[in-house]
């Protein structure tokens, strides 16, 4: 059966508002890939809702010709949960920053993930507070010099993927703002997953933290410092010259110089129920290891929005659809 519905292009997902990020900011690329992905997936503008917190990244919804809410700092997961629980047919996206999601919003972040509300969280990780002009964030490295840490940060940073996995995430992925093809594919996978999809995007803030992710972005280094995860495939990187092998419970890098068989390498399995492998992969950090990008984990688990609505249906089946007259006369009454 053919339909006459107009096919939307990426441009149709652009709102009429001027984009106000700094020239060169990594956010531009994420915005562009998002529009392309939504268009290519045949999504409808009116059925898509972007909800963000506060931060440079959280201006995102203003630039999308969909429904949107630029909410308050750290709380986007809660708004999104209320919306998705009552309107499960909508396609809901949460846009957040590293400060927004992991600092002020850390509590909502883990609870959204454990509930497995069927929506997508895109965390723009620039490892800095952009909008407030450059303080260190929960993902900044120890020793980071910023305006608020002139002698270097002394906080142990959080690893967003490890946090998400520990919070029982059903879908966890990582991508890089400038790796356009990979980012598109990752956004699409996130959108296709049923349940909370969490995507960390390495995003460059060229004003306050320029180059933090250079190792993973620069042509010269990215092949050696990242390893692309593929379900069912061994972890191989550096143009096929290196791989990851398990030594007991710990990963190690090995040279694929002919002495090691591919079968000895660590094979990725994003669907395995247990979160140990995903967690282990999330702990691989540069420079000791290449950092995995791609889908770490994608398992099936009942979603919150389905279940909260199923209970409403069940209750009506069991007790009959609510009737005020019956309710009012329930229990003891008397007539005067």
């Amino acid at each position: 059966m053919s339909t006459d519905l107009p096919v939307l292009s990426a441009k149709d997902f652009a709102s009429d508002q001027d984009v106000r990020w700094c020239p060169g900011c990594g956010d531009y690329s994420i915005l562009a890939q998002m529009k392309t992905v939504l268009a290519s997936m045949g999504k409808k503008q009116e059925e898509t809702v972007f909800i963000s917190g506060i931060g440079c990244s959280s201006r995102f919804p203003y630039y999308m010709n969909t429904y949107g809410m630029h909410s308050i700092h750290g709380r986007a997961p809660a708004f999104a949960t209320g919306l998705k629980s009552t309107r499960p047919e909508l396609d809901v996206w949460v846009i957040t920053g590293d400060g927004d999601a992991l600092s002020i919003g850390g509590n909502h972040f883990i609870h959204l993930i454990r509930r497995n509300v069927d929506l997508n969280i895109i965390l723009f990780n620039n490892s800095i507070y952009g909008l407030t002009k450059g303080q260190y964030s929960p993902t900044s490295k120890v020793g980071k010099i910023t305006k608020s840490t002139p002698m270097g940060s002394i906080d142990q940073p959080l690893n967003p993927l490890s946090v998400a996995i520990a919070a029982e995430a059903s879908f966890v992925a990582r991508s890089v703002d400038s790796n356009i093809k990979h980012l598109r594919a990752t956004l699409q996978r996130a959108s296709e997953h049923r349940g909370t999809s969490f995507v960390e995007v390495y995003q460059n803030c060229n004003i306050f933290n320029d180059g933090v992710w250079d190792y993973a972005k620069a042509k010269a280094t990215k092949d050696d410092s990242t390893v692309e995860l593929q379900h069912g495939k061994p972890l191989i990187y550096a143009g096929g010259k290196k791989g990851i092998r398990l030594n007991g419970f710990a990963p190690e890098t090995v040279d694929l110089d002919g002495n090691i068989a591919q079968d000895d390498l660590l094979f990725h399995d994003e669907k395995v129920e247990s979160s140990q492998l995903a967690f282990l992969l999330s702990r691989m950090r540069f420079p000791e290891f290449p950092e995995p990008i791609g889908v770490f984990r994608a398992i099936e688990r009942p979603t919150y929005d389905t279940q909260i609505n199923a209970q409403v249906v069940q209750a009506a089946e069991k007790k009959g659809k609510g009737d005020l007259k019956t309710l009012f006369k329930s229990g003891d009454t008397w007539t005067v």
Partner: peptide, 10 residues
């Protein structure tokens, strides 16, 4: 915040 989200949805 969840209530505001639900209000947005009608």
């Amino acid at each position: 915040c969840s209530a505001v989200g639900a209000a947005l949805g009608g």
